[in-house]
Design a binder for these strands. Structure first.
Lengths: 147, 147
DNA sequence: CAGCATCCTTTAGGATACTG
DNA sequence: CAGTATCCTAAAGGATGCTG
């Protein structure tokens, strides 16, 4: 079966439903979804806006993620039947309600990820708060504790 | 409505802003990772504990996700060289620091997901109010707005 | 018990040509 | 302009047998 052309994605499994965390993650976990939501938080956007603003996204994926977000009631879409056509995407109230969540995730990333944001002065060693800089592609050689 | 899409906003900032979110999501985005982290939040656990506690996870995936979490410094692992062997997983400080994030995600899921937590009385439970109950499996007959 | 190794299925994501 | 259709790659996830 090909679910690709379906307007929404497959049903959420029971296990996922039992975990609110996974439920939320399912909605915003797409590769570009948080970016889309973030952009929409600054105001309505058109399809082409995303295409231009999000570097590296393909049209198919953009359309797909927008569709999923819409199916999940996180964003609204209005298609003006003009010629040439014009679309307008905006956040639903539900989508807006995600803001604190995204912010929380964002803050953690800033704080513990490889971003030097709170490093205003002190050109010396930044090691005070050196982070592991999670690197999964290159697995940091890490000795295993054995007892 | 609005004429131009370039709107009020420099693109640079957006790019910077989205990254930390995806970074965080990368670390906790695994199918079972948040469950693992959640369980560890209640105390150290062994490999078999997870196997038993998490319904439906395969050993390979469990081992894999544990390994990734460990590589990302979110959890610690101690392998006691006894016979039979015994393992003990626990949260690192970094892993513990995720608690507010997970909580935030969790709360949103509870509040807006398909969980019927009808708060009976309580006048004001934090902020906001209503909940649309997102439904993904049955694509609610949702007509497209056309203008 | 802990957890690799091997094999396989499913899903996400992508490039590109084309249409109303 | 706003998408679909078609085809493809990569990565995530899974079942199961085996070993120290």
């Amino acid at each position: 079966m090909n679910a690709d052309s379906s307007s929404s994605h497959p049903p959420i499994e029971q296990e996922l439903l039992e975990c609110p965390v996974n439920y939320t993650l399912k909605l915003i976990g797409g590769r570009w979804k948080t970016i889309i939501l973030w952009q929409l938080h600054q105001g309505p956007k058109r399809f082409g806006d995303f295409k231009r603003a999000i570097n590296g996204i393909s049209e198919r994926i953009l359309a797909k993620q927008l569709k999923e977000l819409e199916a999940d009631d996180l964003i609204n879409k209005v298609l003006y039947a003009e010629v040439p056509p014009r679309s307008e995407y905006s956040l639903t109230p539900l989508g807006q309600s995600l803001e604190p969540v995204l912010k929380s995730i964002f803050q953690w990333g800033i704080r513990y990820g490889p971003y030097f944001v709170d490093k205003p002065v002190s050109s010396a060693t930044s090691s005070g708060g050196d982070r592991p800089a999670a690197n999964r592609e290159v697995n940091t050689t890490k000795e295993k504790k054995r007892v």
